[in-house]
Design a protein around this nucleic acid. Structure first.
Lengths: 353, 353
DNA sequence: CTGTTAGCGCCTTCAT
DNA sequence: ATGAAGGCGCTAACAG
């Protein structure tokens, strides 16, 4: 009862100053480790700061520094998809590792459309609620890029590159990784391969598809690409379509782990054995790939590192440096049980549904 | 070139006031829809506000209102687990639906331990970075509850109840739901059932376990509970242990969808057919449950609604009202392909590994 | 009904 | 080396 107001009272710099018998300015100098105050006084002040458990008030600091002390991330995919895409949470975890060090907050908002996303950027920046943002799911001719530039809101794109003088980005060329995957399948003897892609408007989807078609044609493989909107239902449909062909592919590369797991379920359901009848490769590796049976061969990227790199770049951009793009480490193929030799699959025609 | 500073200049209330030929105070009154200014002037002011695209500066508003305009959520589970637990993203999406309406931000932080979590609360509150927080994964004798009360940081627990005069919470009694699940299995003829539980320190785990043992004993079923730490490896071990018994259970209820999917993989791997040899029930339904083969019978809750209810309660708490706990709708069992009659399973002994 | 004023808590000039 | 003063943008309590 006696201390009931303990949690309520705020310690301010004035309190410190009063207690130390100096001015507010002196305290400020001492706190920021700048000259203008004697060593002894500084020590005394810092001791009192500790004793009184003083912490700077973010709002006050933000106001005087004209910095929000926060970065933003807007996600424009349906929540139930996001919930299942480990990519985003891992990205967030990587971003945080950079931010929390500098005690910058991460503000997240989920929206439904790109238009809403842009509206959020406008509001955030108008209110100076964030100092910069991380942007994901870059599209070809993405309207967000121009808008962000117009606003002057510091931003970094996760997964570029953004053409011309767009925005800085953290990315790596995925074409060689696609080539690795296709060559791996070719080595296993597959001659009919397919790709279940994500949304074609996304730059990363388009890049991977182009590379896929290039490499397969170079190797003389029969190739097919089916686009989806990343929704599991859509992925299931794509898989069903592919496996219903008179001569179905013997290997399918999916554009996310979620799509791959969906494909695995559909294959099972249609009576295809994995990997004997059909090999499956996931893009982006998460725990989920290892949980299902058989465990999925996947392209593994260190996504938290990806998020951390992008965040580092963002912080530099906010600070006014304008470093070039950051190239992140490329993904590597992690073979697991879902891929196998094509011989079994080709020996006989596919099972009927 | 001419407009190059467009994105940089900030419009303030002073600008509006100058332009309208009134004082800042008048503008403030007009903006906040409060009396003290004539209707005509108000209109004129609002028009200028629109014309100049004015938005309030959060930092300034926060400073003068002594409100951060943000709520916090700290998650203390490993990122790679969080990434796969749809629960959290869905919870966030529900929370946001409430927050964004009032244009309150959601600040998220991932940490490793409860101690770190508490440290974040202290810092956030000391800095007035948030106005309140949503707390998850309540434990028995949870140290966070006392600390939050001591700090005076407004908080709501998602999934209570918190005993005594702890903190307000949004929750529902899960015992009846557990009973439903067990009765459902009993009706299918199962007599040996097991539960792969989460962390026993979590209140919801303890509640479900107690209910599970109660109901099974009441129905005369052989029951066993194995605890895990929610990690897939740990869940896999538990499943392996159960299925290696001389008389293995014919049905297992898992404490999350992630654990259930893991269990399904292990069962497949050990040569158990699902649901013929072993029935599987997941707790918390997400897309993932429908993707695997066979699709998992699961306890379905409207988690976004849960998050929204908790957030509503939090906002009320912040505003100084102290409403009682909110009781959220209970989960319902959604039967799918992973549960079946026990007859097949009991007819013969379990397959060997 | 209007306009002026004084803070919110911090930082950064300036004089001293 | 120190202290006093002013401003960041907004709100609220005053006078006019």
């Amino acid at each position: 009862m006696a201390n009931s107001s303990e949690g309520t009272h705020r310690v301010t710099i004035s309190d410190i100053a009063k207690r130390a018998g100096v001015s507010k300015g002196a305290v400020s100098l001492a706190l920021n480790d700048r000259p203008g105050v004697s060593d002894e006084t500084r020590k005394r002040i810092l001791a009192i700061v500790k004793e009184l458990h003083w912490s700077p008030n973010r709002a006050a600091r933000a106001l005087s520094a004209a910095k929000a002390g926060a970065c933003g991330l807007v996600l424009a995919r349906p929540a139930r998809i996001l919930a299942l895409e480990p990519f985003f949470v891992e990205l967030i975890s990587g971003a945080e590792s950079e931010l929390s060090e500098r005690s910058i907050a991460l503000t997240i908002q989920l929206v439904h459309t790109v238009e809403e996303e842009i509206a959020v950027y406008r509001r955030w920046w108008a209110e100076r609620r964030v100092d910069g943002i991380l942007m994901v799911d870059l599209r070809t001719n993405d309207p967000r890029v121009e808008e962000l530039r117009r606003l002057g809101l510091p931003a970094v794109v996760v997964g570029g590159p953004v053409r011309d003088d767009g925005l800085p980005s953290a990315w790596h060329d995925e074409a060689p990784v696609v080539a690795d995957v296709v060559r791996y399948l070719a080595t296993l003897g597959h001659t009919r391969v397919a790709r279940v892609a994500g949304l074609g408007e996304f730059v990363h989807t388009a890049t991977r598809t182009a590379a896929f078609l290039d490499v397969t044609s170079e190797l003389g493989l029969a190739a097919e690409v089916v686009e989806t909107d990343f929704e599991p239902e859509s992925g299931a449909r794509a898989t069903r379509k592919l496996l219903s062909r008179p001569e179905p592919p013997t290997a399918i590369v999916y554009d996310s782990d979620l799509l791959a797991v969906t494909g695995l379920g559909v294959a099972h359901q249609m009576g295809f054995a994995v990997p004997d009848d059909i090999s499956i490769v996931a893009w982006d590796d998460s725990l989920m790939c290892g949980l299902v049976h058989p465990p999925l061969t996947a392209v593994t990227r260190d996504i938290p590192a990806y998020g951390a790199a992008a965040t580092k770049l963002l912080l530099a951009t906010i600070d006014g440096h304008s470093p070039g793009d950051i190239v992140t480490p490329r993904g590597v193929l992690t073979p697991r049980g879902s891929t196998g030799s094509a011989r079994a699959a080709q020996r006989e025609s596919a099972p009927t549904n």
